[in-house]
Design a protein around this nucleic acid. Structure first.
Lengths: 150, 150
DNA sequence: CCCTTGTATTTGTATATACAATATCGAGGA
DNA sequence: TCCTCGATATTGTATATACAAATACAAGGG
């Protein structure tokens, strides 16, 4: 007979695991935003790319990935889908390695119309998670971003 | 000229959006656990299913989905993959709608050997996120689970 | 000028995830 | 008994995600 039973091991992990909890909240929050944005045919992931690009003007994949802790191949495919929907377009550049992109007119209009559903989702998320969580979340992301640089 | 420029709108959302932040942390945390478990050919999602099943003895998909806020179709496919790897097996039952499952011997062994890498991942995650975050995270998941019932 | 090395991006492959639609079955009523 | 209703699970389809490998290119050293 082993020292600990399977149900004891499982119980410990279930009670303490940080990843399970992160992922439960992530699914719950993602659902809130996707629901709110669905009438626009837009998902929260895609909205985030619109936002990042809109803030930068001309967006370069590599720094955006570092900032969002997102794999390059993931961004590549997301941008591909968004280009085919007419929301993003490639920008010509001197450096042949780079593939910078920017919002199209249609992409800008979409981002504008996303404001209202986004605000609704923010309210619902805040109500679900509580103010305390939101506050710590912000500080923690700062921290993780600093960690990424160092 | 519209009231707000695109870069202003994008800036506001980028600074305030709860979902972007949740998702950044989720990716970072998932990566930590997947890295730690990779030598076992196991992912954190799959470990969570092993854990949930190991705790329950005989696992029923529907309550597990409610508990984890996971779509039924997602669990169905994850379980399918894990059955084909020999970690899970179907349990026979009277109710023809149900498809309860349990850990195989191999699944139990795998869960046992996951303990050590899991603990390493826990340490790294705690170091990355900070104790304050972990504490609030736990309370918040309790809260979300209560919300799911009501 | 060529070669090597490092960076940026894309492709191949696999998993995770969800919504909509379907299939299956149990339970209760007429 | 049969029929509808509700619950459970699976399938069809699309997106999101990452690792590994390949590709494309720039920059610097002989």
């Amino acid at each position: 007979m082993p020292t600990k039973s399977i149900s004891t091991i499982a119980g410990t992990i279930a009670e303490e695991c940080i990843a399970v909890r992160m992922r439960i909240l992530n699914r719950a929050v993602t659902r809130i935003y996707d629901d709110a944005l669905r009438p626009l045919g837009l998902r929260v992931t895609q909205m985030n790319i619109l936002v990042a690009a809109g803030k930068m003007g001309i967006a370069h994949p590599a720094p955006m990935c570092r900032n969002l802790r997102l794999d390059g191949s993931t961004l590549s495919r997301n941008v591909e889908r968004m280009k085919s929907k007419g929301w993003l377009e490639t920008v010509s550049t001197a450096d042949g390695r780079a593939q910078p992109f920017q919002l199209t007119r249609q992409g800008k209009d979409l981002l504008r119309s996303a404001q209202t559903p986004w605000r609704r989702a923010q309210k619902r998320a805040r109500a679900l998670l509580g103010d305390g969580f939101i506050e710590v979340l912000e500080r923690t992301v700062e921290r993780v971003r600093r960690d990424a640089e160092g």
